[in-house]
């Protein structure tokens, strides 16, 4: 009983909380995405379904649940239905080690960064499985693009995260947050500005968002890896995409923007964390509806010719300064 109360119950609460948080975020950001798209293109966006279209994402979700599930001929039945589940489940786990407040931390593990980087790679695997098992040439092309993109953008992301770890000497997100307490100049964005920029760019590549959404490029590959998925199979990929975006934005605000610490001491709380995450999310949507998609060779050139050398130089410089 003691063990249950002390260890298992908080974890259960954290998992349920993560599910609710994921659901809220998915609904909110689907709505925001469509509204942002509308206003950027000088039209109102969803407007009639609910007040200002607020019920639109909920209605869309229910409709997707009520649609027919299609398994294509010659598709690998087991792998085909494993892929959407495999993209959904790790998202829940990723929310656990993120510190949303001094007590609002699902699971304070000292390898939180490693855990997040490791389990977010499951998304790549799920994308490959989805594309490969649906027996569709567009799916395979999307999966092939996803592989080379995931491999490429993981490396600068890791190198920037390593630079922060070199500075702080820890992989725990709670410790990294607490090292940024106090006034705003303690935030790591001012100590590692280059790493911040590289992280932001690599974040778009990691989450398959425009301008780097090559894996599902609508104009070239119809829908890329999820071309054959109907109903909630597609819905799972959609939900997971927003889930990963929120995770990456949360990690970015913990690493560079001080997490739940405000710009001046004494105002700390979860509202800072949520505010920073949502600001970064809005930035991602803004970029998506502003820039066109890059070509695939351009995508890899940005990574291998710019991000990777810059991230390596940044890491070496950090190591040198820390040594002195």
């Amino acid at each position: 009983m003691q063990v249950f109360m002390q260890h298992i119950l908080p974890l259960l609460i954290a998992v349920v909380g993560a599910m609710i948080w994921l659901g809220i975020n998915a609904l909110l950001w689907v709505y925001c995405e469509r509204k942002f798209a509308g206003h950027i293109q000088r039209r109102p966006g969803p407007f009639e379904v609910g007040p200002h279209g607020a019920l639109q994402p909920l209605i869309d979700g229910l409709k997707l649940m009520g649609k027919q599930l299609v398994t294509p001929d010659n598709a690998d039945n087991v792998l085909y239905w494993t892929a959407p589940i495999m993209t959904m489940i790790p998202v829940l786990l990723l929310y656990l080690p993120i510190p949303y407040g001094p007590v609002l931390t699902g699971m304070d593990v000292n390898l939180a960064l490693l855990l997040i980087l490791a389990f977010s790679s499951f998304n790549g695997l799920a994308v490959i499985l989805a594309g490969w098992s649906s027996n569709n040439k567009w799916g395979v092309l999307g999966a092939a693009r996803a592989v080379s993109q995931a491999v490429a953008y993981e490396i600068p992301l890791l190198l920037t995260v390593l630079a922060i770890s070199f500075m702080t000497g820890t992989l725990s997100l709670v410790d990294i947050t607490n090292l940024q307490a106090g006034y705003i100049h303690n935030w790591f964005i001012f100590k590692q500005p280059l790493a911040f920029i590289i992280f932001i760019v690599a974040m778009f590549g990691e989450t398959n968002r425009a301008p780097f959404d090559l894996a599902e490029a609508e104009s070239e590959l119809t829908a890329g890896f999820h071309v054959e998925y109907s109903a909630m199979g597609f819905g799972c990929f959609f939900l997971a995409e927003y889930g990963y975006m929120v995770v990456m934005c949360s990690v970015c605000s913990v690493l560079f923007l001080g997490g739940y610490h405000g710009p001046i001491p004494g105002l700390d709380g979860w509202w800072w964390m949520v505010g920073k995450t949502f600001a970064l999310m809005s930035f991602m949507l803004w970029v998506r509806w502003t820039y066109p998609r890059v070509r695939f060779d351009q995508l890899l050139n940005i990574n291998w010719k710019w991000l990777l050398p810059l991230a390596t130089a940044n890491l070496l410089a950090t190591a040198l300064i820390m040594k002195l």
Binding site: R34, A37, P46, F47, E48, V49, G53, Q56
Partner: peptide, 8 residues
């Protein structure tokens, strides 16, 4: 703007 009715 077809989007007003959720059909965009």
């Amino acid at each position: 703007d077809l989007a007003r009715f959720g059909a965009e």
